[in-house]
Simulated scan of single mutants.
Amino acid sequence: MRYVRFLPANGLLLGITLLVNGSAFAGDFTVKAATVIEMKAVYGQVESRTIVPARARISGTITEVRVTEGQVVKKGDVVATVVDDKIALQLRAADAKIGALNSQMENAKTDLQRAQDLLAKGAATQSRVDAAQTQFDVITSQLAAAIAEKAVTQQSAKEGDTLAPADGRVLTVPVTAGSVIMAGETVARIASGQYYLRLSLPERHATEITEGAQVDIAERGIGVEGGFIKARQGRIAKVYPEIENGRVIADVEVADIGSFFVNERTLVSIPVAKRTVLGVPPQAVSTVHGIDYVTVDAADGPLGVAVVLGERYQDGGQPRVEVLTGLAEGDKVVLP
């Protein structure tokens, strides 16, 4: 049996003694300085890499809207249908014109055949045959042009369907059925890119923010007052070189960000500084009457030293508790 005195950091005797069995100590731990990364919880805003508009290709009246906010669409899906009543009239006019030209072409073909027959009998001149051939060729070209014009009108009718330009989620639909819209106006906005988090940090952290650094993302809906609960991990993909209004802008990539809303804010814990600390294993600390003690291997045997503790951290995968005062680097701590 031996007695160990517990002394505060200033060396004054507390008058507290503990009866310690000599076999109660498992070994020594040498106090060494370690570098830890300080984390700061900030709000990050969910953004989409690209937001593309689905635009009307023709002017007219919207007869049907097929999507709503939040709906997931694929590239080429019909977002809305725009109808221009003039297109139907243009198609009927094109059909009538084609019919008239078909009749003229039949007459020109008959005249050409008659002129060729008379020329063979010697009752007509070559100039008459040439004139009939020219008339037939002109009407044939006019018919081809009328058919092409009808195809253009038919294509315009098909372009009444407003298509999704890319895969994504519909953010807004600023139109309703019955609205009059012009060609080029936006029918819906679609978030088509991968979601990421945009951070806005104070300028004092500019030198500590580096691309590739790992960050922690909190559970959705958790505020600062609720404590930080890690849900997933990401990395800083880009740090913008321009400081805006005293803020550093950085983007965080997350492999599976979940079902966040665009522009939703969530807590992100980011590394902002490094500091050197002294720490011991948590089991090396004992508490007596509300005061924390660490047993140090002194020249005359184990000695209890009062310490002030800080935060817990990991050193090489091992848990440590920071010691603010009471120990110096190189001290040998006796582990129970």
Results as ranks from 00 to 15, higher is better:
E264G: 00
G221R: 00
P202V: 07
D256C: 06
G317H: 06
G279F: 03
V262L: 13
K238N: 10
A306K: 04
V307Q: 09
G304S: 10
G227N: 14
G258W: 05
A237Q: 13
L199K: 09
A306V: 01
V277M: 13
I209M: 02
P319H: 06
P271G: 03
P202E: 12
H289P: 03
I243N: 03
E244G: 08
R232D: 01
S286A: 15
D292T: 07
E242A: 14
E203G: 02
Q214G: 00
S269T: 05
P282Y: 01
Y293Q: 03
R312C: 00
G290C: 08
E219I: 09
P319F: 05
I270W: 00
A255D: 12
E203K: 10
E242I: 12
L197K: 09
R265P: 00
A250N: 03
Q233I: 12
D300L: 04
G227S: 08
K238W: 14
T266E: 01
Q214E: 11
I217M: 00
L199E: 03
V262C: 05
V224R: 15
R198L: 04
V277D: 10
G310A: 06
T210M: 11
A298D: 10
E264M: 04
T210F: 03
V294S: 07
G304C: 02
N263A: 06
S259N: 15
G227Y: 08
F261M: 05
V252H: 01
A213F: 03
F260V: 05
I236L: 06
A306G: 09
V239W: 07
G304M: 05
K274V: 04
D297T: 09
G304F: 10
G212T: 08
P302V: 14
N263R: 12
G246V: 12
V248I: 12
E208I: 01
F260N: 08
V248M: 06
Q318V: 04
R198N: 07
D315W: 08
V239T: 07
E203A: 13
I270Y: 02
V280N: 11
P271D: 06
G290R: 14
G310R: 14
N245W: 06
P202A: 11
R312T: 09
V307R: 11
I291W: 10
D297W: 01
L309W: 08
V285L: 03
V294Q: 07
I270Q: 03
D216L: 14
K238R: 15
R232W: 02
G223R: 15
L267M: 11
I222Y: 08
V224D: 02
G227E: 10
Y240T: 05
V285G: 02
G290I: 05
G223I: 08
E242C: 03
S286F: 13
G301L: 14
T266G: 14
G246A: 10
A284D: 07
V262G: 06
R204S: 12
Y240F: 15
A255R: 11
A299M: 13
I257C: 00
A284E: 07
E311V: 06
T266S: 11
